[in-house]
């Protein structure tokens, strides 16, 4: 048996200096990786801001694109795209939110463990389905024979939002302590009433968080909308029965234009989208920490 000697010589004999050096090197590599992650976001934000800031003004949000062949060059905006995105994402949220919450309630409160595992896995797979595949699916289902529409776009985005909303709701439902459910059930209150009045109110913050993150995610989705809601006019429209222009599709189209002014407007629209996503993510994070803290202090 060796004695626990702490002399320098014995430590060196055990290779301590080398291990210490390896430890430092690993720490440095890990730190660099973390810095790289932050840097990528920084570079993206900075480059978009630098190119788009010039065209970022109120007209971008309030004016529609000028009619082609107009003789007098007018200031052009993308109001139609912002309106279209608002309508399509709004309807998608109205579709995905109730279904997602109900799926989560069923899985967490009522389903047998085997069913829960199976359906959760399905949700994860659905979450992993590429957006373009969802686009083709909705194209075949709703667009072929009927034409493009804002509704079809909403349905496609709702398919992407559903697993996100359901998963985040499930996560916060598992945080609600079992003892609260027991307290209500022991009074002779039915399961559904317990879920509705005792469990769900505890999770509203978490559900809002998940929804905001899902909205931020689909607001930038382009691929499915190219199939189902891209052949839109340049006039301002709020009617989802027809194809609506959206921000990501507008960015895509403007970037292919020959006019450099269009490129600048594409950057500006991208900047608006980026700012929206950054702020909604931060807001969602703030809400989430608040909810988690409240749930963990109230047991």
């Amino acid at each position: 048996m060796s004695t626990h000697s702490l002399t320098k010589a014995s430590l060196r004999a055990e290779g301590l200096p080398r291990r210490r050096a390896v430890n430092r090197a690993m720490e440095l590599v890990a730190w660099l990786a973390a810095a790289l992650g932050v840097a990528i976001l920084g570079v993206v934000v900075w480059s978009v801001a630098r190119r788009g800031a010039g065209a970022l003004n109120l007209d971008l949000l309030t004016k529609t694109p000028s009619v082609a062949f107009s003789l007098t060059p007018v200031k052009q905006g993308l109001a139609n795209a912002f309106a279209g995105s608002l309508v399509i994402v709004g309807i998608a949220t109205l579709m995905a939110l109730p279904v997602g919450i109900l799926v989560a309630i069923y899985l967490n409160e009522f389903a047998r463990p085997s069913v829960r595992t199976a359906v959760s896995l399905t949700l994860d797979v659905l979450n992993g389905v590429p957006a373009i595949v969802i686009g083709i699916f909705v194209y075949g289902l709703l667009v072929l024979g009927h034409g493009q529409s804002g509704f079809a776009g909403s349905f496609a985005l709702a398919c992407i939002m559903l697993p996100l909303v359901a998963r985040s709701t499930m996560e916060v439902l598992t945080l609600v302590p079992m003892s609260l459910r027991e307290a209500s059930l022991a009074l002779g209150v039915p399961r559904w009433r317990t879920t509705l009045s005792i469990v769900l109110p505890q999770t509203i913050g978490g559900i809002v968080t998940g929804t905001v993150l899902a909205v931020a995610r689909v607001a930038g989705e382009t691929a499915p909308l190219l199939f189902v809601s891209s052949l839109a006019g340049t006039s301002l429209s709020w009617d989802p029965h027809h194809a609506l222009q959206t921000v990501p599709v507008a960015i895509f189209e403007l970037s292919e234009s020959a006019d450099p002014a269009d490129h600048t407007r594409a950057w500006a629209a991208a900047l608006v989208l980026l700012i929206f996503i950054l702020f909604s993510s931060l807001g969602a994070r703030w809400l989430a920490t608040r909810t988690t803290r409240r749930l963990s202090t109230s047991r």
Binding site: P177, S179, L180, E182, A183, S184, L185, A186, L187, G188, I198, Q202, S298, R299
Partner: peptide
Amino acid sequence: RRNIGMVFQRPNPFP
């Protein structure tokens, strides 16, 4: 449970 109530080991008031 409507007829047979229960009090638990740890106090569990509703929030």
